[in-house]
Design a protein around this nucleic acid. Structure first.
Lengths: 300, 300
DNA sequence: GTGTGTAATACACAAATGATATCAATTGAT
DNA sequence: ATCAATTGATATCATTTGTGTATTACACAC
């Protein structure tokens, strides 16, 4: 019993005429008759009552017809599903992201992705960079939006957003209004930074910037998210090191300044397991590249 | 793309090993590999990722697996349905019946039938005998419970219940208490009968009984149901001709008497179109015969 | 009675399924 | 590092099976 038999049966049931049904099936009548006979024999069910002049469905045939149609429809759907899944138009995509991505690029990308691929269920997990690396290696997430660099050679990364960092001062801090801000000005300033574990790239860059100038910055507080850093700055605890986009938080107690001639980079990358072959992931990455380009073309 | 391919795919997906899958399918490995390749090619979808050492489902394969299982299950169900329908264990049975059958045999048979064939939907229509004949010929009902005789040679009938008729007197009627009741006693009695159109068998038998005695009964009122006849009797309109089972109506104003030596028959038959091949009908008739025998064995 | 329409049958051929033998590649053990 | 074992792919062949052509059997209509 094969799908072919069902197709033949449905067609004969619709035409109630072996000749016409055969024509519709682009075959000749004798093999069609034979296939129907074979179907009936295998099922142990008489589906048609043939007088020499008419063909009609038996009761069993009448009840079999809608079922057979459904099997064929189901098969078609199974095929569709598989094809869509292969094209990344159907499926599941689990994305890890660092908290800061929430304020910037993530909403825009997700919105656009859901518009283009409404049948992919997107699952989001806020995770720190190292947690994302673990999750990627374990296959718990398909993609990470994280702060490079990461070490594993099994993971491929690609920058999504390359911004700069700024220093966040309490608004009445003496250096907040200074014309040019140099490294030397910052020698004894108490700093608040995101901990190395959470954002090693920034932490190390920050340290080496000062080491090049011959001293070590005074880090008085570490935090797990840059939003928290801004909070501590506005509480007057110290000067924060945060991505320039932090300005979007609109904290009226904080003022943002760049260090003159010494940019600190704040890069957000997307990371994937190289061998992950979820087609939805490829689509997501392609889309992200496109969205990113659109944005980088427009003046910041 | 045939069901065979789906079976093969599901098995390989379950085993993730072509050799073991082939063994389970009672075939050898090479043709199995080939069939899967063929399936993938026809679908245009890679279902498995084969390294030389492992087999695993692709994302598309993962989404296809449950769909494929469902197609196979649906096919099985289609087969079941057809087989049950052929055995009369599934389907639809439309039964016409005369009102009087409600009080007697019908409830018992229907109850037993529904117990034995719960998946057949039984549809009941109260119809007069001639309406049932029309409905049978049109195929609107599968079976009729009606009063013979009927004329059409396309219809087969078989008695379900052979009872006798009685005369129904108002309880204070002079003849109600008479020892022996003869035709002669009834010469001028006003009769109430069920109209010829509704119950031709009884009507004609009633008339010929009197014609044999040399006179015509005085019919003062006709009715469409015997229950109505009893009602008219208890209102004192006349003497009713009704099946003996009318006694079960427990009308305290009516008294029932037989005509001595001249039985009037009240037969209820089941009738079917000879060419109707609804298997549920055959089952119903078989069951009815059995139930009827059980009943006729017990003393009435 | 003859002719048309319809499904079934007989037979031949082509296509495809499955089996056997073999290969290539990877893994794990000695 | 080399070798054996495992595993899926490939090649080739036999068998089965699906399909086409020709024909038959039967019913119904004129």
């Amino acid at each position: 019993m094969e799908l072919r038999h069902l197709t033949y049966f449905v067609t004969v049931a619709e035409e109630l005429h072996f000749g016409r049904a055969a024509a519709r099936l682009q075959m000749t009548q004798p093999p069609l008759s034979k296939q129907i006979q074979q179907l009936e024999e295998e099922m142990g069910v008489k589906l048609f009552r043939r007088t020499k002049r008419h063909v009609e469905l038996t009761t069993a045939g009448e009840f079999f017809l809608p079922e057979a149609r459904q099997v064929l429809a189901q098969m078609q759907q199974a095929l569709d599903t598989a094809q869509k899944a292969q094209r990344g138009e159907f499926g599941r995509l689990v994305i890890g992201f660092v908290g800061s991505a929430t304020y910037d690029i993530l909403p825009e990308i997700i919105r656009e992705y859901r518009r283009q691929f409404p049948d992919v269920s997107v699952i989001l997990h806020e995770l720190s960079t190292p947690d994302q690396v673990d999750a990627l290696l374990d296959g718990r997430i398909d993609m990470g939006l994280l702060h490079p660099p990461i070490s594993s050679s099994l993971i491929a990364t690609e920058p999504v957003q390359t911004g700069v960092c700024a220093l966040s001062f309490p608004k009445n801090h003496p250096l907040a209004g200074k014309d040019k801000l140099t490294i030397e000005d910052l020698r004894d300033v108490p700093f608040i930074v995101v901990s190395r574990e959470i954002w090693p790239g920034l932490y190390d860059e920050f340290l080496s910037l000062f080491q090049d100038a011959g001293f070590t910055p005074r880090i008085v507080q570490e935090a797990t998210e840059y939003q928290m850093v801004v909070g501590l700055v506005s509480a007057g605890i110290g000067v924060g090191v945060v991505p320039a986009t932090a300005e979007k938080l609109f904290n009226l107690e904080a003022v943002y300044r760049q260090i003159d001639g010494a940019p600190l980079h704040a890069v957000l990358s997307m990371a994937r397991l190289k061998k992950n072959s979820n087609p939805a992931l490829d689509q997501f990455i392609t889309l992200t590249r496109r969205v990113r380009q659109l944005n980088s073309e427009s003046p910041v």
